[in-house]
Every structure is written in C-alpha cells, then in structure tokens.
Write a protein that binds this DNA or RNA. Structure first.
Length: 223
DNA sequence: TGGACGATCCCCT
DNA sequence: GGGGATCGTCCAT
C-alpha cells in the first residue's frame, strides 16, 4: 500500500479531513506495530475560535504551523493526549484531529495500553474479537477490568482513547508523517454517500461549523 | 504569580 | 445527564 504523499497534506484542511477517512495510520515503536483505519476526523483552521492557533503561534501550537504532513500531539484535561495531522503549507496553523480509528493490527497491545486484560483476545492476537466488548470497573483504588459482550469499540472510539491505545504521547509531537515512526497508508476510497458530516464534538466557540467527518455506520465512530 | 479552563474519559445517579 | 480527575497553557493581575 502506498504512503500518503506530502501533497495530500498540503491541500485545504476540510478536504484533507474528509479524505483521511478510510486511510490507515501506522505507528511503530519498540518492535510493535499498530495499525488503524481512520473513521472520524475534525478540521481546525485559522480564524477558527475552536482552534489552538486562534490567538496566534505559541510554544504549544508551533507544530501546527509546520508544513503539512507532521503530527501534532497535545496534552489536555490534565490526563489525555490527542493527535492531529498538520495540513497546508508552512506558516499556516491548521490541522485535522483524528477522533477515532477502527483497530486493525496490534490489538492485544492496544488492549493492554488501554488497561484491559487481554484474556479475551483470541490467540491469533490481531483478529478483532468482533463480538466482544470491554468495560473498565473499579475495585477500591485498583483498576480492574472485565469484558462484556458488545462493547470492545471502547478501544479506539475517541481521540484520547486512540492515543492511549496506540501509545501516542508528547514524544510523538512534531513527527514527520513521511518518516518511518508514524505514517499513513492509502486505503479504500470511501463513496460520498458513506461519509457523514456534523458539527464538532466538545467545541463551544465555533460550534456551528460542520467540520467533523465520519464513516456512516462504522462501529468505532465516537457517537 | 494566580486562576480559569479545556478538541476527554469514566463512573455514578 | 452530571461531576470528578488532573495539569499544562494562557491571560490577567
């Protein structure tokens, strides 16, 4: 499968957000490979009050101003990371938040990273246990887990869940997506009829903008 | 130097 | 449907 080219990321951000759907994100570190199909994404643009770049360039958002095709990972709510694909040419602070992926490869390790026991994962490891679901439960201060039928979409159906499953954090901020650590592969072409569009999640300023794109009917879409 | 708040998630009611 | 966890960032003092 060919890698997405630099020119893919340099295009208008709304187009990139929509076209990311159906492509694969690959993360490699320490001999482990994670692969997921992108099923939900949101655009953040200049002049957009919901964007980190709304008030100009800072130390935190500097990566968003780089040339398209870099990874912008930020820390939020004191405990979560979210990952974005930087778009457009250098000097323009725009990006696309990856909100959800469908897990493809590295599933056992994703479960571990998310705090679920892997007991229920089938021995072939990277076959999705499609009938399963996971639920975290609390016992005193100890986090323990149990699995329930029908809930395993919790692995990657949100931007911070995706980052936790794939082990993405601060150290991945600024990575060039045309390198070998994190990159995107050309996947299926999604017909327009299968792409949904809506307002963005968790946004107050700029809430009217319909800059969220998702694959209709996909189980890993966040809502 | 302080304080408000956030592109979230999880648990409880 | 609501609140708590938890801390980096940014802006106002």
């Amino acid at each position: 499968m060919p890698r997405l080219s630099r020119s893919f990321y340099l295009r208008p951000t709304l187009q990139v957000a929509r076209d990311l759907l159906g492509n694969f994100i690959v993360c490699r570190h320490r001999g482990q490979r994670f692969v997921g199909k992108i099923v939900e994404a949101e655009a953040y643009r200049e002049g957009d009050p919901a964007s980190h770049t709304y008030r100009g360039k800072t130390k935190r958002n500097e990566v968003m101003y780089r040339r398209g095709g870099h990874l912008y990972v930020y820390f939020t709510y004191g405990m979560h990371f979210c990952a974005n694909v930087v778009t457009r040419r250098e000097g323009i602070g725009e990006a696309v938040l990856i909100r959800a992926v469908e897990p493809i490869e590295g599933i056992r390790r994703m479960m571990k990273n998310r705090g679920f026991t892997a007991d229920v994962c089938p021995p072939e490891a990277d076959q999705p246990p499609s009938k399963m679901r996971g639920k975290k439960t609390r016992r005193g201060d100890e986090k323990s887990v149990s699995w329930r039928k029908g809930d395993w979409v919790n692995l990657t159906n949100g931007p911070a869940k995706f980052c936790e499953a794939f082990g993405l954090s601060r150290q991945h901020n600024g990575i060039d997506l045309l390198g070998n650590r994190v990159y995107l592969l050309n996947g299926e072409n999604i017909p327009k009829s299968k792409i949904g569009r809506s307002t963005r999640v968790g946004v107050t300023n700029g809430r009217e903008k319909r800059w969220r794109f998702f694959m209709r009917g996909n189980d890993w879409v966040s809502r």
